[in-house]
């Protein structure tokens, strides 16, 4: 099974969180957002500059930078579809 960093998830794709590698306040922040193992996350859109990327996490739209996104390991589960 191939795991990706969240930042590698193509826009429109959904992934399932397998592990969060961040530490300290960043880890807490990501946990608060609901990024616990098993959570489904969808990459919704890139900013005009390409980074950060906005993700649909438990109904909310949250932008994460590459640095934060790369600490969240996901297993891709679906290819492009609607924004939900």
């Amino acid at each position: 099974m191939t795991l990706f960093g969240l930042h590698e998830l193509p826009v429109g794709c959904t992934g399932e969180v397998v592990a969060v590698r961040a530490t300290g306040p960043t880890r807490r922040r990501l946990l608060d957002l609901g990024l616990v193992p098993g959570t489904r996350v969808k990459a919704v859109r890139k900013s005009a500059a390409g980074d950060p990327v906005a993700f649909r996490i438990r109904g909310a739209l949250v932008a994460l930078r590459r640095e934060e996104g790369s600490t969240v390991l996901v297993r891709p589960i679906s290819m492009p579809g609607g924004d939900r």
């Binding site: 300290g24 739209l61 949250v62 932008a63 930078r65 640095e67």
Partner: peptide
């Protein structure tokens, strides 16, 4: 100093 980023885009 600690630093982290998460930006919510509300509807």
């Amino acid at each position: 100093l600690p630093s982290s980023f998460a930006l919510e885009l509300p509807p």
